[in-house]
Amino acid sequence: MNKKFLALILAAGLAGCATAPEGRPADPRDPLEGFNRGMYKFNDTVDRAVLKPVAQGYVNVVPSPVRSCVRNMFANAGDVMSAINSFLQNRAPDGINTTFRVLLNTTMGVFGCFDLATQNGLPRNKADFGQTLGVWGVGSGPYLVLPLLGPSTIRDAGGTAVDFLADPVAVSNIDNVPVRNSVYGLRVVNARANLLEVGNLLDQVALDPYTFTRDAYLQRRASLIRGANGAEGALPDYSLPNYDDDDDAAAPAPASDTQKK
Rank of each mutant, 00 (worst) to 15 (best):
D27E: 11
D27Q: 08
D27P: 05
D27G: 06
D27H: 13
D27Y: 12
D27L: 08
P28I: 04
P28G: 01
P28V: 04
P28E: 03
P28T: 04
R29E: 13
R29D: 14
R29Y: 02
R29L: 12
R29F: 06
D30G: 02
D30H: 07
P31T: 08
P31Q: 02
P31Y: 12
L32R: 10
L32K: 03
L32C: 00
L32Y: 11
E33W: 05
E33R: 08
E33L: 07
E33M: 06
G34D: 07
G34M: 12
F35Q: 07
N36G: 02
N36A: 03
N36I: 06
N36Y: 04
N36Q: 03
N36W: 06
R37M: 02
R37L: 03
R37D: 01
G38V: 11
G38I: 08
G38A: 09
G38Y: 05
G38F: 05
G38D: 08
M39I: 14
M39W: 08
M39Y: 11
Y40T: 13
Y40R: 10
Y40H: 14
K41D: 14
K41Y: 04
K41V: 10
K41G: 12
K41N: 12
F42A: 11
F42R: 06
F42S: 06
F42C: 01
N43C: 05
N43E: 13
N43G: 04
D44V: 03
D44I: 03
D44P: 01
D44N: 09
D44C: 01
T45A: 05
T45H: 01
T45D: 02
T45W: 07
T45V: 03
V46Y: 06
V46I: 14
V46T: 06
V46E: 01
D47Q: 13
D47M: 07
D47K: 06
D47S: 14
R48F: 00
R48E: 01
R48Q: 05
A49Y: 02
A49I: 12
A49D: 04
V50A: 01
V50P: 00
V50M: 02
V50F: 00
L51T: 15
L51K: 09
L51Q: 11
L51P: 02
L51G: 05
K52Y: 09
K52E: 13
K52R: 15
K52T: 15
K52Q: 14
K52S: 09
K52N: 13
K52I: 15
V54E: 10
V54F: 12
V54C: 09
V54N: 07
A55N: 07
A55C: 10
A55M: 12
Q56N: 10
Q56Y: 05
Q56L: 13
Q56H: 08
Q56M: 15
Q56F: 09
G57I: 11
G57D: 12
G57L: 09
G57T: 14
Y58W: 12
Y58L: 05
Y58V: 11
Y58P: 04
Y58G: 03
Y58E: 04
Y58Q: 04
V59Y: 04
V59E: 08
V59G: 01
V59H: 02
V59A: 06
V59R: 13
N60H: 14
N60A: 15
